[in-house]
């Protein structure tokens, strides 16, 4: 019965199949063992990672790969910290050499305090990466026109923000997220802004293919418990979306028949 309900609901991005609809970030955790335990609890199959200079003064420091195996999880290298198309391409070429990954997360952010996606720079970087053979999952504004343009350029997934990165405010503009989903032929993921499990549920109920969460898990008081909550939240939202919710009506509608009452 349960298999009938949950079975065969994989999603596909760039020809790769995943059963988990939760992608988790690996940043902001207090240490690598907690990172590993939370990712395990989340059930995620894909994790985002950043590319940075090695610390030459401490070359034997434990590395992410020692705790989060790139053979078990699909690494999704990101371009966090890149502010130009050139930086993004350089960074992801290095990531590709480090692990051979073509599937990447492009994010080109504007300055604090919004860290809002810089869409002109994002579009330029996406074009450069696609020309270089990358399969680009792109973090973007919740702008249906920009999202469509990114899809038409060849991006393999569109990832609008739900709210500013790390804000924990949940999906602030569900109408635009729904419009992006309705117009897209590639997967749409809410990336950024999830604060707790029901934000992930809500995003999935809108019809997102998956949700990307980092801060909400990593900075929770108990990251492992929150990771498990996010897993449940994403599953609940997905099931509810597939089930088809009842329409909202501005009136009561009794659950018990009003006929056949005793007199």
């Amino acid at each position: 019965m349960d298999a009938q309900i949950t079975g065969n609901d994989d999603w596909t991005v760039a020809g790769r199949h995943f059963s988990s609809r939760l992608i988790v970030g690996t940043g902001k955790y207090k240490d690598l063992p907690t990172t590993a335990a939370a990712i395990e609890a989340s059930g995620a199959e894909m994790v985002t990672v950043a590319v940075r200079r090695v610390n030459l003064s401490d070359p034997k420091a434990p590395m992410l790969q020692d705790y989060v195996s790139p053979t078990r999880y699909t690494y999704l290298p990101n371009t966090a910290g890149c502010f130009t198309a050139d930086d993004a391409v350089r960074t992801l070429r290095l990531a590709r050499e480090a692990g051979g990954w073509n599937l990447v997360k492009l994010e080109v952010l504007g300055p604090p305090p919004t860290l809002y996606p810089d869409m002109p720079a994002t579009l330029e970087a996406a074009a450069a990466l696609i020309a270089d053979g990358f399969e680009v999952m792109v973090y973007c504004s919740d702008d249906p026109i920009a999202a469509k343009r990114l899809e038409e350029m060849g991006c393999v997934a569109i990832m609008p923000l739900g709210a500013p990165i790390g804000s924990g405010l949940g999906v602030q503009n569900p109408l635009m997220i729904q419009m992006i989903i309705a117009n897209a032929k590639v997967p749409v993921l809410v990336d950024a802004g999830v604060g707790t499990a029901y934000d992930a549920t809500f995003a999935m109920e809108l019809g997102c293919d998956a949700v990307l969460v980092n801060s909400a898990i990593a900075l929770a008081s108990d990251p492992v418990l929150m990771a498990r909550a996010m897993k449940a939240g994403v599953e609940a939202g997905r099931l509810a979306f597939r089930a088809g919710r009842i329409p909202r009506i501005n009136a009561a509608n009794p659950s018990s028949p009003l006929t056949g009452l005793i007199r």
Binding site: G25, T26, G27, K28, Y29, L32, T35, T48, V49, A50, V51, R52, R53, V54, L56, M63, L64, Q65, P70, Y75, P77, N78, A80, L94, A95, A98, G99, I165, A192, L212, N214, S215
Partner: peptide, 10 residues
């Protein structure tokens, strides 16, 4: 030279 590796990121 730049020598890089993967670290935690979102």
């Amino acid at each position: 030279l730049e020598i890089v590796h993967f670290i935690g990121g979102g």
